[in-house]
Amino acid sequence: MPTDIPALLGAGLLLLLIFYLGFLSIKIKFPNVILFILLGIGLTKLMDDSELLHFASEIGIVLLFFLLGLEFNISRLGGIAKRILPAGLLDVVLSLGVTTGIALLFGLSLYLSFLIGGIAYATSSSITAKLLDDRGRMANRETEFMLAILIFEDLFAPLIVAILIGIHSGEEVTGYMFLILFGKIVGLALLAILLGKTLFKRFESFLDRIDDEEFKIALLIGIALAYGGLALYLGLSEVLGAFLAGMMLAEVGKIEKIDQTVFPVRDLMLPLFFVYFGTTIKLGDGVPMAWMLAVVVLWSVISKVLVGVWGGPMFGLSKRASLRGGLSLCARGEFSVVIASVATGTMKVFSGLFIVAAAFIGMLLFEQASNVTNKIYGKPEKKKKRLKVPGN
C-alpha cells in the first residue's frame, strides 16, 4: 500500500472535515473560523507547505475582498479615504508604535521590537470580513469604518514588511525604497479607477449577453485573481488588488448579478484559507518570554478598542458604534503571519503564540461586541413606526 495519501483523497477528507466543523459551529454557537484555524494547527505536520491548499486558500481570500470591493464605488471610496486618515494614523501610533516601545522596555533590540510591533499592528482582514458577513453586520454603522481601517492597514503593512525584509537581508532601507512602494500602490489604484471608468463602464450589458453561467464564472473570477495576482507581482497584498478589482466593477451598478455568480465559489474556498492559516502557525515547545507575551496580547486588544473609541468619532460615528467597532477589530491574522515569517528561533515561537492568542481573543470579542456595548450604553431604543390612517 502507498504511504502517501493521494491529493484527491486528502482534499475530499478535508472538505468533509470542514463541513463537520461548520455544522458543529452552528450547533454549539461557536465561531466556525476558530474551529477551521484549530483544524489547520492540528494538520500542520500533514499539510505543512501544501501548495494545493495554499493556492485554494488564496482564491478564497481574493474572492472575499473582491466581493467587498463591489460595495465601494470610486466616489464612495474617495470620500471614505479622507475621513479615515486621522483614525488610520492613530492606529499606526497605538498598535505599531506603542507595541514597539513595550518590547524595547523588555530589553529587546530595536529591530526585534519593531518586528513585534509589526506583528501586532494589522487586524486580520480575512477574519474580520468573514465574521461581519456571517453575523449579518455588513449594514451596521461601524462597518464602513472598520473596512476603511482594514484597507488603510493593508496599504501601510507592506511598508513594515519592506523595512523588516530589508534589514533582515542586510539591505539598506532608503527613502527611494518607500517611494517605489508608494508609487506601486498609487499606480495600482489609478489603473483600477481608469479601467472602472472606461473598460468596465458598460460591463453590465456585456454580462447580460452571456447566457452560459460557466463562462460568466470564468470571467469574473479571472478578473479578481488577475488583479490580485498583479498586486502580488508588484510586491503588494493580493487583498488590496482584489478589493480594487471589486471597486472597478462597482461602477456596473447592479452588482447582484456578480454576487450571485461568485458567492458559491467564495463559500467553497474561503474555509480553506483559515485551515491554511492554521498550518502556518508554529507553536513550538513552551512559552518564551511569557510576561512580555501577556502584556503584548493585552495591549493588542486595548489598542484596537482605543482606535475604535477615539478614531470612530473622527470618522463620524456615535460613541456606541465606535466602541462596537473597536471591539470588533482585535483579531490578528494573515499580515501578522507574513511579518512573523521573518522571525527566527524563539521569536518565531513567540510570534506564533501571539497570533493564535490574538486571533482567538479577537474573534470572541467580536462575538460579544454588541452585548458589551449594550451593557455600557444600554439597549438601543427601537423606533416606533407611525401608521398612517386613511383620511387623516
Rank of each mutant, 00 (worst) to 15 (best):
D211L: 10
N73Y: 01
L387N: 06
E171D: 12
I28A: 01
L150W: 01
L236D: 08
E51K: 15
L270G: 08
F19H: 05
S75E: 15
A139S: 13
F366T: 00
K82P: 01
F36V: 02
G333R: 12
Y276A: 09
V349A: 08
A321I: 02
G284R: 09
A242G: 05
K216R: 13
G241Q: 03
I185D: 04
K385Y: 01
G10C: 10
K216Q: 12
L268F: 10
D208M: 14
F145H: 05
L219S: 05
Y377H: 10
L110Y: 13
I41Y: 03
M292Y: 07
S303A: 15
S370M: 02
Q260E: 14
L89I: 15
V296D: 04
F263S: 11
T99W: 04
I258W: 11
G69I: 14
S125E: 04
I355M: 03
I102Q: 06
S341E: 04
A120E: 05
G101M: 13
I221F: 11
L43G: 05
V33G: 01
Y111A: 08
G362N: 10
G235N: 05
W291H: 09
I37C: 07
A189T: 12
G235K: 06
L132F: 15
T128V: 07
I167M: 13
L85N: 08
E71R: 15
I255A: 12
V349E: 12
G228S: 05
G79D: 14
S328Y: 03
S205P: 05
F366D: 00
L9Q: 13
L293S: 07
M1R: 08
M248Q: 06
R135P: 00
I281C: 08
G170W: 03
